[in-house]
Amino acid sequence: MLLEPKSLDNIIVGLLVDNFFKWYVAPKDLWFLDRKKQADAYIKKFKEIGLKNIGNKIEEVDERKGIEVLDENSFIEFIRRINKYAVSTNELRESLKLNLLTTSKQDTFYSFLPSLYVNVDKRELYSLYPEPASYEDFVPKNWSGVYEDFLPKIDWEEKYWYDKNGIDLLNLENNRGKK
């Protein structure tokens, strides 16, 4: 695992493309799907408080250079660029178990709670991100974005927060979604 999950910095994202699911632990700024919408909202907000000529203050991360909008067409290139952030379910599970031994339960919960689920096949983004980043507001045209509990949408074998005995290590689902 290249990056450790860290609340508000490196988020856990589930991505489904062409019926293939993969987890990623990556910097949170990579996942605003429509950077133009994000930039426009940023500029509007600052104009409302009286600032002018602020320009586009959204920093372009290397993996997003040249990809202003992540949609069903650009995700293939993006996935190639972010492959280094891909992590297996077992890796996440083992890292979670280790974290529970070395970090407070609360810190572990916020770091290991999946933040986003992006279903490219259905053009959907679901967010559980705990801060007011509002990823769901910055989705491409013809996509839906919602702030909603997406954990039941994740296949059982991908739910890293369950151990091999079916115990919910973070008590995320309170016995929902069991086998």
Rank of each mutant, 00 (worst) to 15 (best):
L116V: 04
D9W: 05
Y135Q: 00
Q38S: 10
L113M: 15
D40F: 06
L100D: 12
L125V: 01
F78S: 06
Q106H: 13
L172M: 14
E136V: 08
N165K: 04
G50I: 05
N119Q: 06
G50T: 03
D71R: 14
T108C: 02
V61K: 10
L113Q: 15
D163K: 01
E136P: 04
L70F: 09
L169R: 06
A41T: 02
T89V: 04
L151F: 13
L70I: 02
D149Y: 15
E63C: 13
V87S: 07
Y126V: 07
V13E: 01
W23D: 00
Y117L: 15
L16N: 11
F20K: 12
F78G: 03
A39V: 08
E94C: 06
G166Q: 00
I54G: 06
P130Y: 10
F150P: 02
I167S: 11
Y147R: 13
Y160R: 00
L16F: 06
D34C: 08
W31C: 06
N90D: 12
N165G: 08
F138R: 04
K6Y: 09
E124N: 14
D137V: 03
N165L: 12
E63S: 13
N174C: 09
I58T: 07
L92I: 03
P140Q: 10
T89S: 02
K37N: 04
T102W: 05
D163E: 03
S115M: 03
K57H: 00
P114E: 07
D34Q: 05
W143N: 06
S134V: 09
L92W: 00
I11K: 12
